[in-house]
C-alpha cells in the first residue's frame, strides 16, 4: 500500500469516526444528564433522514432538507420525551432498555406507514460532488464537509456546556439532580430540551449520512450499536470520551477492513484471505471495546468520577 493510499484510508477512518461522533454525542449527552439508555436513538436518526429526504425531494434544496431533518428529529424527540421517556428517568436501566426497544418497533413501523416501505431518494448536492486534492491524496468534498460539521458540533457542544447558562444547568444536573431542582431550575423543561438537542444531533447525523448512504427503514440500528460501542469506550456521559472513542472506532474499523484481508493474503489464497480477513474485521471493534473495558471498566474518560 502506498503512502497516499494509507493517508487516504486514515482520513476515511477519521471521517467515519466523525459520523459516529454525531450519533454518539447525543446519546452520551442524554445519558450524562438524565441517566437514560436510549435504544431509540437510532430511530431518531432514521426519522431525521426520512424528513430530510422528503423535504429535499419537495423543495429541491438539500440545505432546507438538512435543517428539516434536524428539526424533525428534534420535534419527534420532544413528542417521545413527553409521552414516554420522562416516565423512565426514575426507573432502572432495565425498564429503559425495554421501553426504548419497544419504541424502535413503533418508530420503524410508523415511519414505514408514513413514508412507505421503499428506500427514499436523497443525494448530496451537486456543488459538493467530486473530489479535491490534498497533497497527494484525492478526497471527496462531501466527506470533508462531514469532518468539518463534526468538528463544529464538537466545538458547539463544548461551548454550550461550558459557556452558557443552560450548560451550567446541565452540568449541575449531571452532578446533583436534587440540588438543581432546589435551585429553582425547571428540571422537566431542561430534560426535554436536552433530549431534543440529542435528537436533533441524531437527525442531523441521519440527514448527512443518509445523503451519502441510503435512507431506508431500519437504517438506524447498525449505527446505534456502533454509537453505543463508542460511548462505552469513551466513558458514558463524556462528550470528550465520545469524540475520542468515535475516532478510535472509526480508524480501527476502517484500517482493519483494509489491512486484515491483505495481511492474510501473505499465507492464504486470495478468496479465503478476503473472507477470513473481513470476518475478523467485523469483530475487531468489539474486541477493542472488550479489551478497553477489561483494562478500564468505566471507559477511557469516566464522566462522573
Amino acid at each position: 500500500m502506498t503512502l497516499a493510499l494509507t493517508l487516504e484510508q486514515l482520513l476515511n477512518g477519521i471521517q467515519f469516526g466523525v459520523m459516529l461522533f454525531l450519533m454518539a454525542s447525543g446519546l452520551t449527552l442524554i445519558f450524562g444528564v438524565m441517566g437514560l439508555i436510549n435504544l431509540a436513538h437510532g430511530s431518531l436518526y432514521m426519522v431525521g433522514a426520512f424528513v430530510c429526504a422528503y423535504v429535499t425531494g419537495i423543495t429541491g434544496s438539500f440545505w432546507l432538507g438538512l435543517l428539516a431533518g434536524a428539526l424533525g428529529a428534534a420535534i419527534m424527540g420532544v413528542i417521545v420525551e413527553v409521552l414516554v421517556i420522562r416516565r423512565l428517568y426514575q426507573r432502572d436501566h432495565l425498564d429503559q432498555v425495554l421501553a426504548t426497544f419497544a419504541l424502535i418497533l413503533i418508530l420503524s413501523e410508523g415511519t414505514a406507514l408514513v413514508f412507505g416501505s421503499q428506500p427514499l431518494w436523497l443525494d448530496i448536492p451537486s456543488v459538493l460532488k467530486g473530489s479535491i486534492e490534498l497533497g497527494s491524496v484525492v478526497y471527496p468534498v462531501y466527506r470533508i464537509l462531514i469532518i468539518i460539521v463534526g468538528v463544529l458540533v464538537a466545538l458547539g457542544l463544548y461551548l454550550l456546556i461550558s459557556r452558557t447558562r443552560i450548560g451550567m444547568k446541565i452540568r449541575a444536573g449531571e452532578n446533583d439532580r436534587e440540588m438543581i431542582g432546589a435551585l429553582g431550575v425547571n428540571i422537566s423543561v431542561l430534560y426535554t430540551f436536552v433530549f431534543a438537542v440529542g435528537a436533533a444531533l441524531a437527525g442531523l447525523a441521519g440527514s448527512l449520512v443518509g445523503a451519502l448512504q441510503s435512507v431506508e427503514v431500519g437504517m438506524g440500528e447498525p449505527v446505534l450499536i456502533l454509537a453505543f460501542v463508542v460511548i462505552v469506550i469513551g466513558g458514558i456521559g463524556s462528550i470528550k470520551g465520545a469524540l475520542i472513542g468515535a475516532m478510535l472506532v472509526g480508524i480501527v474499523d476502517t484500517l482493519g477492513r483494509v489491512l486484515l484481508p491483505s495481511f492474510f493474503q501473505w499465507f492464504m489464497e486470495p478468496s479465503a484471505a478476503a473472507s477470513v480477513g473481513s470476518a475478523l474485521a467485523s469483530m475487531l471493534i468489539y474486541l477493542l471495546m472488550a479489551i478497553i473495558l477489561a483494562i478500564k471498566p468505566k471507559g477511557l474518560f469516566p464522566a462522573n468520577d
Binding site: 445519558f31 450499536i225 469483530m283 468489539y286 471495546m289
Partner: peptide
C-alpha cells in the same frame, strides 16, 4: 471480563461479546 464492569457498562460489554460471537458465526 464483563463482571469487572457495572451498570450500563455491563449491559454494553455483554452486547459486545455477543456481537463478536455473532460475527464469528457468520464467518
Amino acid at each position: 471480563i464483563s463482571l469487572r464492569t457495572q451498570g450500563v457498562y455491563f449491559i454494553m460489554i455483554t452486547l459486545a461479546f455477543a456481537q463478536m460471537i455473532y460475527y464469528f458465526s457468520i464467518s
